[in-house]
């Protein structure tokens, strides 16, 4: 194959990918015009928020291999930060965003620096405990969090000049907001995972000793993964609280944490598209199975078991695809072919 062909083939692939991305975005943005069903839109908003959460969890568990069974705690930290700022101090939805991200990230940093000496199952157990402690604390700190009654918040409002737009209780504005938030998260994740940090994280997951011997400060990078992961959970929590207009400890229980891990595993650990597909699937499938009432959990369990039997790496999981610089590789191949040909001549 000539060099020219190789490059154009690569460009074609890139063009196709760009076209697919644009097409998908167009469909997602246009969806509410074709589908006015409030309930379905609401499910999609939830799916979007879960997708953001799973992307955050993916940094810890998918890239860095730190199993976190208490991820809902960081989600709660973002949601409650907004709720408390809104109820007690009257701060608006938009103004409290940085506080939500920082508070969750700081929680991850402090908690992570305490527990990241632990490995594997032990880390999973401690995070599980932390998740439960957080929920119980939220339940009992009546003065601050409203306890089991939760907190009711005002809706997000956009003020521009002297016009204002209230998000209200309809799903449509939240749909676009969560879509936008998801896009931002995807871009951040893509850039991080293709950077030297992404490579270092995966190296740590694969073999911590080998990674350390390659000059990676494993402790620092694990803490960084923990911090980024929890900051993203804070972001999702902010969005969730704004959309619900209400927060209570129930939303951040153990089941939520487990569900998030299940989404990640179903979609494919360590894959960005996998995390999104997993979140969509595990939000939508239980809704579709609603007619089966209590029995739906059986079917749900069956799907998970079948998945683990036939595709344990998850729907889109498996091997990291690293496409960006293929043309360089084509060049390498050609050069080596030339060298080989010369060797044969001699």
């Amino acid at each position: 194959m000539s060099k020219k062909n190789a490059t154009s083939g690569y460009n074609r692939g890139r063009l196709l990918r760009t076209a697919m991305t644009v097409g998908m975005l167009a469909i997602l943005f246009a969806l509410p015009y074709f589908n006015h069903n409030e309930y379905q839109l609401d499910v999609l908003v939830s799916a979007g928020i879960f997708a953001i959460l799973v992307l955050g969890l993916n940094v810890m568990t998918g890239y860095c291999g730190l199993l976190n069974l208490g991820y809902a705690a960081f989600f709660a930290s973002g949601a409650y930060t907004y709720a408390i700022l809104n109820v007690k101090y009257g701060l608006s939805f938009w103004v409290s965003l940085p506080a939500c991200i920082i508070s969750a990230g700081a929680l991850g940093l402090v908690f992570g620096s305490c527990v990241l000496r632990l490995k594997g199952d032990y880390l999973a157990l401690v995070t599980l405990g932390f998740g439960e402690i957080t929920r119980i604390a939220l339940n009992n700190m009546d003065g601050l969090t409203g306890g089991p009654n939760g907190l009711t918040l005002s809706h997000p409002v956009i003020r521009f000049a002297n016009k204002s737009f209230d998000f209200g209780i309809k799903s449509l504005p939240y749909y676009y907001l969560s879509l936008l938030a998801l896009l931002v998260t995807i871009i951040i994740m893509r850039r991080l995972s293709n950077s030297r940090f992404g490579r270092a994280w995966i190296a740590i997951k694969e073999d911590e000793v080998a990674a350390a011997c390659m000059g990676i400060n494993t402790g620092k990078l694990k803490l960084f993964a923990f911090c980024i992961g929890s900051a993203i959970a804070g972001f999702a929590g902010w969005l969730f609280a704004g959309k619900q207009g209400f927060v209570s400890p129930e939303s951040f229980d153990f089941t939520t944490s487990i569900m998030l891990v299940a989404m990640l595993v179903l979609g494919g650990i360590g894959s960005i598209s996998g995390a999104i597909v997993g979140a969509l699937a595990l939000t939508i499938i239980p809704e579709l199975l609603r007619p089966l009432q209590e029995y739906r959990m059986f079917l749900f369990g069956a799907i998970m078991i079948i998945m683990m039997l036939f595709r344990p790496q998850g729907l889109l999981g498996g091997v990291r695809i690293f496409e960006e610089f293929r043309p360089v590789s084509e060049r390498v191949r050609q050069e080596e072919d030339e060298v080989l040909a010369e060797d044969l001549k001699q």
């Binding site: 030297r196 490579r199 270092a200 694969e206 390659m214 000059g215 990676i216 360590g270 990291r320």
Partner: peptide, 15 residues
């Protein structure tokens, strides 16, 4: 690093 490509393995070394 089993799940990474050969190239990425080497790139990790440059960290």
């Amino acid at each position: 690093f089993a799940s990474m490509s050969a190239l990425e393995n080497v790139m990790v070394g440059t960290f």
